[in-house]
Design a protein around this nucleic acid. Structure first.
Length: 603
RNA sequence: GCCGCUGUAGCUCAGAUGGUAGAGCGGCGCUUUCGUAAAGCGUAGGUCUCCGGUUCAAUUCCGGACAGCGGCUCCA
């Protein structure tokens, strides 16, 4: 079955799902039922009644009945006004809204519609004459089609879950229930898909985070506030230090700013107005000032920039700071390390002239590419442009040229990109780097954002070569993004098998009995003296010695379960031969004690 | 925040139409010094997430809170 047929089949199954739901709950009001990756969903409103997973067996049974019966999919063409009347008479208000949009604008696609009149009826000219419906059995649905000839041709499916979903994606609209299903041509393919899902769960960072003892969550501390164990701290510091050292090599200087600030700072920046509800407030018993926990660092870095007179000769000024910011995210959005309320950003800000924008963007893209190449993580780049909504600030022409510069930089760097309208920050267009987690969900990691608003708001300035006062452009950039989120993706990407340089415990020496302790000391002396150069220079090999009175098999099993990059096995035979048995994921080999330092250096 | 699901020992899980609960691993103790993914025996761990309600009796039923999961919305 090709992609097109599969799509057709999944779409028809969405109708069959709706037909089954209508059979079981005749009062059901239907939204939309599109095809998605691996399956489809249908949005349904049953009023007070709620579908839960306990109803799935009954719905699936009804669907199988419909498939077995083999209703034909019948195409019906209907004048638009007659269709609207049908929706009213059959108590299908959501379909009525869609039909209103079709009549008024000829489309139901939200981004092509004027939001102020979405779903609103019109008496005027129709944009279109007729609409098509598809009917299978007693169920009839507004639909462009095409469909299978008969329900009998539907493949295998499985209802997966039910979730809330706002009608047309608007929070102020009623919430419907979204019934998700997967569907394939054959049972074998469905089983394979479910098996892949099971495999992916083994790489879930929340599962590995517990198994590998990386972080923990405590209800006493609060949701979205992860606590990092010694191993997890080692990991986050390794990647954080790499990010810092890399950016220093690309011309950035470290700065430091406090974690609380007067709220005035964000009123000036514009963040208070836009994100006020998500700021944690801090009360002072000493002064009447209102403080907040900082949700980001750009205004602080701007204050450092403006602390001295700046000449064009100083530009660009590049600051970096890895620090934790706090955002009161909605509780329902929190999850694992991916979305937290204490967010450690490897944040940086460039202050430059408009002439320097292009080269600074290139500098940052090169830096990000180098970093993700080290992690061997493929990324997709998202170019986010402006929406014309009132929430966005700044000069429109400047936005336009900046967007063009971002795009040409991305193309020049040969990056895999896609464009998205309306995702820009309120102060400027941006480039986001998207990484994929274990089950295929994309998450933003690195970001490069142009800002034409904040420098002006804070009165930042420099003097150009003619003695004129100018406003600099600001470029925000985080490479890892949020270290917490980065780790969530990194853990799933590696399955917990971290590269040697980032592994919390890099080497474990496993002894066979207690006759080799002097030989173990010889080995540790070598390890202690090694200086590594990849990907950053450091001189601390993180090793432990497992000399417990346990079987070698058990020691190997445990070290493997901890996903240690290197196991060094030593017994009397190795000691006599001045050798070490080295066990890695690739297999096992014997090396000379004198070759150990070299061997480690080359990992 | 909203919709649905979930919460039993440190971990993974079992269990009873309402009569206060078990296994494996891990921990601890003893024995064992053993060469490639779990040595043997013994032993201690639980307000069955928390707070209310119903009941002679609640871990089990009902309500609420907290937390986790899947989505929606949001994401500076």
């Amino acid at each position: 079955m090709n992609e097109e047929q599969l799509h057709l089949m999944r779409h028809s199954l969405a109708h069959i799902t709706a037909a089954a739901v209508q059979r079981l709950w005749p009062e059901a009001k239907f939204g939309v039922g599109p095809v998605v990756d691996n399956g489809f969903y249908y949005d349904i409103d049953l009023g007070e009644t709620k579908i839960s997973e306990t109803n799935f067996a009954k719905i699936e049974k009804s669907m199988r009945g419909i498939i077995e019966y083999g209703d034909a999919f019948e195409k019906i063409e209907m004048p638009i006004d007659e269709a609207i009347k049908w929706a009213q008479e059959n108590n299908q208000p959501y379909k009525e809204e869609l039909l209103n949009d079709l009549k008024r604008a000829g489309t139901t696609i939200a981004k092509d519609l004027d939001m102020s009149e979405i779903g609103v009826a019109t008496d005027g000219q129709s944009a279109i004459e007729t609409v098509t419906f598809y009917k299978n059995g007693r169920f009839m649905d507004l639909c462009r089609g095409p469909h299978l000839a008969s329900t009998k041709e539907a493949g295998v499916f499985k209802l997966m879950r039910v979730a809330g979903a706002y009608w047309r994606g608007k929070e102020t609209n009623p919430q419907m229930q979204r019934l998700y299903a997967v569907a394939f041509a054959t049972q074998v393919e469905l089983d394979e898909y479910l098996e892949r899902l099971e495999q992916a769960k083994l790489r879930d960072h929340r599962k590995l985070g517990k198994e590998l003892d990386l972080y923990t969550l405590s209800p006493l501390v609060g949701a979205g506030l992860p606590l990092f164990t010694p191993r997890g701290t080692m990991l986050r510091e390794a990647v954080g230090q790499y990010s810092n050292q890399l950016r220093q090599a690309y011309g950035f200087q470290k700065v430091w700013t406090p974690h609380i600030t007067k709220k005035d700072l964000y009123e000036t920046s514009g963040h208070w107005e836009k994100f006020g509800e998500e700021l944690f407030l801090v009360t002072s018993q000493e002064t009447s000032d209102s403080f907040v926990l900082k949700p980001m660092n750009c205004p602080h870095h701007g204050q450092i920039f403006s602390s001295r007179a700046r000449s064009y000769k100083d530009m660009p000024v590049r600051y970096l700071e890895t620090t934790t910011v706090y955002r009161d995210e909605k509780t329902g959005e929190l999850g694992g390390l991916n979305r937290v309320r204490a967010i450690t950003q490897d944040d940086s800000h460039v202050f430059c002239t408009t002439d320097q924008i292009q080269s600074e963007i290139n500098n940052l893209l090169a830096c990000a590419s180098e970093l993700y190449a080290t992690f061997e993580m493929p990324l997709r780049v998202r170019l986010s442009y402006r929406d014309d909504g009132p929430a966005y600030l700044g000069d429109k022409a400047l936005w336009g040229s900046a967007q063009a510069q971002l795009k040409s930089a991305v193309i020049a760097n040969n990056m895999n990109y896609f464009e998205q309208e309306g995702e820009a920050a309120f102060y400027g267009p941006k480039i986001d780097f998207m990484a994929t987690d274990a089950i295929g969900r994309e998450h933003q990691v690195a970001t490069v954002q142009l800002d034409f608003v904040q420098p002006g708001r804070f009165g930042l300035e420099y003097v150009d070569n003619e003695g004129n006062t100018k406003t600099p452009v600001m470029i925000h950039c985080a490479l890892l993004g949020s270290i917490e989120r980065f780790l969530s993706v990194f853990i799933e990407h590696t399955g917990g098998w971290f590269p040697f340089w980032a592994a919390p415990e890099q080497i474990r020496i496993l002894t066979i009995n207690d006759t080799v302790s002097d030989y173990v000391s010889e080995i540790t002396t070598i390890l202690d003296g090694i200086v590594l150069d990849k990907p950053i220079s450091y001189n601390e090999i993180r090793y432990t010695v497992d000399d417990r009175n346990e079987s070698l098999g058990k020691k190997i099993r445990e070290a493997t379960n901890w996903k240690l990059p290197v196991q060094l096995i030593v017994g009397q035979k190795d000691k006599d031969a001045r050798e070490i048995s080295v066990r890695t994921q690739a297999g096992e080999e014997k090396i000379k004690l004198t070759d150990l330092a070299d061997y480690i250096q080359k990992i």
